[in-house]
Design a protein around this nucleic acid. Structure first.
Lengths: 278, 278
DNA sequence: GAGTGGTCTAGACCACGAG
DNA sequence: TCGTGGTCTAGACCACTCT
């Protein structure tokens, strides 16, 4: 059986080919005369067109050809160059604007946003250090399985007495302790994490590479507290010192609560950057 | 001269009427036979269709008809009911998903997100209190114009010696001081703010209602610090107590830096809720 | 007036999820 | 298999900015 035909085949067909199912392929090939440059057809990547456009723009920004304040090609220009429709080019730019990489000004154009720290970016400690050109290392204080953290189990959407993997690490920068981070996860779902070499390895990285979890976002509660005796000793600071406390519930792309983490950061050594919207 | 005609007039024309220019109106009226229910035509509001759809869904969530976990009408359903195209219904849902109000699950549907604090929501202190059902009040410690805050002027994109309005308030909750907030803005652009009755009035509200500024977002730096003598006295806490420090640069919808604010919050009295993305 | 982004159409095919 | 969201088309008109 032949499935439905597209009603308005055009030069854009060349893009369509790489996405459409086998059933259509021959029908489309039949329309080859419409296609201007078959040779320019992108390799059969699975990547959506709008993401490819974003990548192209990102490359030009990272490469320095496009500096802050410079205009990004307009929707119409991108649509023409990448041989996609306006809506697709628009989608690419809108998403980049939401991420804060570019700014859109009605009637004027789209411009590269000022150089900026990445706001609202969920990064593990190792990744933050890496983004600053430093290498992180950690001292594991404790790791194992606990069963009595009822409240944390609840936050992770597990039964109150679930077995939880628990990892407590002192984070170091230039051989100085700057933070204490404690993480919890379902020991039954991710048993291998307990024995992983987490002195130098990113928990986020392990989850994503070894456990097939894709992390998506975290909901966080941030406040200030002060150091009790134990933390004062671990971080080598006076008792009662100010600490920034960040409690995170980290979700996967399937909106599944995956890790609960609490971090206590020495004042002056950690600043959280956030963007909030009205 | 007659301007271009739409190529595919349909029943959706009834929506188009309320947006299209006068020149087209008669042409469209001519097509009235296509329109199913002229009486149901929405009043000539200026609101985009996708925002109206969002409002309708929000109403049903706020009203309790749609509870967390319940399915929201699908794109196709919304398109049919609101007489818009799929892309428009889709736009409405996508934006609500980004805001975290609903969750989209590929192949399954769109669902009301769990009850949640509003993450990454830029609110003034008065507004936060109001959202908790409390009334805020403040004690103005200082207000006036300063000219020597070069760094802050720079952050606001002004010349180093610009005249800056400055307002310092102690924020009260249940007659207890909980925070010290200091705001700066261009005294030349918003001169009236200096003399405004800010004991009980929201600075955000004044800016938006009286000054015609629409606030859009703020970039924030959050860390922990401790109370020096002056702040300890103002907040009636021991010297050296932990404080949550939030420095905000607040932007208008035109991406213009409008207000710089620094807040120092007593520990235990203020938690910031944030969502970060991977 | 020319060019830009904002909203919108009337569909199409795909990948995915649940029964 | 059916219904869902994800991506995409080839345009349209509007509101806005710049000059």
């Amino acid at each position: 059986m032949v499935i439905g035909r597209r009603k308005h085949p055009t030069a854009h067909e060349c893009r369509v080919v790489r996405r459409c199912g086998k059933q259509l392929e021959s029908a489309v090939r039949f329309r080859a005369p419409d296609v201007k440059t078959v040779g320019a057809m992108p390799s059969r990547s699975e990547e959506p067109a709008y993401k490819q456009i974003q990548k192209a723009i990102r490359r030009r920004i990272d490469g320095g050809q496009l500096k802050p304040g410079h205009p990004v090609p307009s929707e119409r220009e991108l649509a023409r160059v990448h041989k996609v429709s306006l809506m697709t080019a628009r989608h690419a730019l809108s998403e980049m604007a939401r991420e804060g990489l570019v700014e859109r000004r009605h009637g004027a154009g789209t411009f590269v946003a000022p150089p900026r720290v990445q706001f609202n970016k969920l990064l593990g400690y190792s990744e933050q250090m890496a983004s600053l050109g430093l290498t992180a290392h950690s001292r594991v204080i404790a790791s194992g399985v606990v069963t009595r953290e009822h409240e944390i189990a609840a936050r992770l959407g597990l039964a109150p007495t679930s077995r939880l993997g628990r990892l407590e690490r002192v984070r170091m920068a230039a051989d100085e302790p700057v933070a204490l981070e404690t993480c919890y996860w379902s020991a039954d779902e991710y048993p291998r994490l307990v024995d992983a070499p987490l002195e130098r390895v990113s928990l986020f990285g392990l989850l994503e590479r070894e456990c097939g979890v894709e992390l998506a976002y975290s909901d966080e509660e941030i406040d200030a507290t002060d150091a009790d005796l134990r933390i004062a000793e671990l971080l080598q600071i006076p008792r009662g010192s100010s600490l920034l406390r960040i409690r995170q519930l980290i979700f996967s792309t399937k909106s599944r609560a995956t890790v609960y983490a609490m971090g206590l950061y020495r004042s002056g050594r950690h600043t959280l950057r956030v963007r909030r919207f009205r």
